[in-house]
Every structure is written in structure tokens, then in C-alpha cells.
């Protein structure tokens, strides 16, 4: 969800940065409809739009959730790695291990909150009278 907002912002920024042809009626259309291709013949002048915009359009809800779960899992693995490093004496960064454990715990709580909200909305839909 956070990533989604980030890429949208990047796309808006890229659109603003694109060189617009002066004295062109099409520029107004570009403002309103970002999908309209710009009428610049020399493509080398264009700033490339990040391909992430296409990726977000294609990415389904499942992949979004999947990515979030992967990220939480990554945090938990990092915490476990830090913990074992302290245990085996490879490092004495006790605080780093504690911080990554807390971070993993919070990320997990966030994931559980999201899951609860999803289940709640699903149940709300199932109760709906048709």
C-alpha cells in the first residue's frame, strides 16, 4: 500500500518533469489525460517515464498483499539473523538486535491489523442483502 502511493507520486513527478511542446493545444489535453502520448518526434529529448506505472496497473491485489507479507517476513528473518549474531558472539550490537526484533514485531502487528480489516470488510459484504 505504501509502495503504491510511492510509485504514484513518482509517476506524477515524472509527468510534471516531461518537456511539453510550447503553443500546443495538445498540452492541455496532456494535463487532463496523462495517457495521451506527447507529440515530440525526437524521443531522445524525453525523460523516460518509470515503468513502474505499468507494473502497478498490472499488479493485482494478491501480489500487493504478497509483497507486504514478504517484507514482514524479511524483517523477521533480519531480526533472527541479528539475534543469532549476538548469541554466537559475532557482534556485540545488542541494541541493533533488539531494535530489529521490535521492528519485526511492529511490522507483524501492522500485517495482522490489515488482515483483520480485510476479513471484517469481507464479512460485511457477505452480510449484505441482495
Amino acid at each position: 500500500m505504501i509502495n503504491n502511493i510511492g510509485t504514484n507520486d513518482a509517476a506524477t513527478l515524472a509527468r510534471q518533469l516531461l518537456p511539453r511542446p510550447e503553443n500546443s493545444a495538445a498540452s492541455i489535453g496532456n494535463d487532463l489525460n496523462p495517457a495521451t502520448p506527447l507529440s515530440i518526434s525526437d524521443t531522445s529529448l524525453r525523460i523516460p517515464i518509470p515503468q513502474a506505472t505499468d507494473a502497478t496497473q498490472h499488479s493485482s491485489f494478491t501480489t500487493l498483499i504478497d509483497r507486504a507479507v514478504q517484507e514482514v517476513d524479511g524483517k523477521m528473518k533480519a531480526a533472527a539473523a541479528d539475534q543469532s549474531k549476538v548469541m554466537t558472539g559475532e557482534t556485540n550490537n545488542l541494541h541493533q538486535a533488539m531494535i530489529s526484533m521490535q521492528e519485526a514485531s511492529l511490522a507483524f502487528s501492522l500485517m495482522v491489523e490489515v488482515r483483520n480489516k480485510l476479513v471484517e470488510s469481507y464479512q460485511e459484504l457477505m452480510r449484505m442483502q441482495v
Binding site: A68, E71, K75, N93, H95, Q96, I99, E103, L106, A107
Partner: peptide
């Protein structure tokens, strides 16, 4: 994903103080 904001700054300070 950054859950606890600014935690890396504090972590570096903790390392420095420990040193």
C-alpha cells in the same frame, strides 16, 4: 517499509556511545 521512523539514526548513536 520503515515502521519506526528515524530508528537508524538512534541506532548509530547507540553504537557510538557504546564505543
Amino acid at each position: 517499509m520503515n515502521i519506526i521512523s528515524g530508528i537508524n539514526v538512534t541506532a548509530s548513536a547507540l553504537s557510538a556511545e557504546k564505543m
